[in-house]
Computed example of a mutant assay.
Amino acid sequence: MDDTIPAVRFDTKIAVLIRDDLATWQRLNVTAFLVSGIGTAAPEVIGEPYADADGTGYLPMFRQPVLIFCGGKELLTAAHRRAVDRGLAVSVFTGDLFATGHDAANRAAVRGVPADKLDLVGLALYGPRNPVDKIVKGARMHP
């Protein structure tokens, strides 16, 4: 590891908020789906490709940490409302998506429910650090 590279404090934050009553496999699955949209919507969060000492190339990843939080259903509902009200980039995963099998069905399941009635099991946010902190206020770091 190169200790000469200075630490970076990012002006932005990537945060995932997962409902605390999900099974472990669901938490992992939801997190993976939620963060997949951030890199396409905000390409500046993606770093350069990786390579090992042998020259084998690897895909790029986020250039900054992804913080994973958890909380109850009411907390997710409130966080979703705050994020939408502030105009932040948000991805959502609802309970209905566990029963769908492809992207078009996922979008149809979300589109069929008004925002205030979504059965949110997870959401991911990207935006300026302070607003993101306010949106996830009350959540705890995922264990």
Rank of each mutant, 00 (worst) to 15 (best):
R19H: 08
V16R: 01
V92T: 07
P114I: 08
V113N: 14
A99T: 09
Y126M: 08
A32P: 00
T12D: 15
A78R: 12
I14K: 00
V45K: 00
R129M: 08
V16T: 07
V136Q: 01
L120T: 05
A109T: 05
A109D: 03
G55L: 09
T24R: 09
I135P: 03
A115K: 14
R129K: 15
G71L: 05
L76H: 02
V30L: 03
A15I: 04
G71R: 02
D2H: 15
G87P: 05
Q64L: 11
T31N: 04
R27Y: 05
V8R: 12
P65N: 12
G72Y: 09
R19L: 06
G37Q: 08
G87K: 07
Q64P: 03
F62Y: 10
I5C: 06
L75N: 01
V132F: 02
G138F: 02
P43T: 15
V16G: 03
G122E: 02
Y58D: 13
L67P: 00
A139Q: 00
A124L: 08
A23P: 02
P60H: 08
A23D: 09
T12G: 07
Q64N: 12
A99I: 06
R111K: 13
L75Q: 03
L22S: 06
A109M: 05
A51N: 09
D20Y: 12
M61N: 04
I18D: 01
T12Y: 15
T4E: 04
V66Y: 04
T4P: 03
I5Y: 09
L67G: 02
R19M: 05
L28M: 10
A99S: 10
D103N: 06
D11H: 09
V90I: 13
R19Q: 06
K117F: 14
D85Y: 12
V8T: 10
V132P: 01
G72H: 11
V8F: 05
Q26F: 08
G39T: 06
V8K: 09
V110Q: 08
T4S: 15
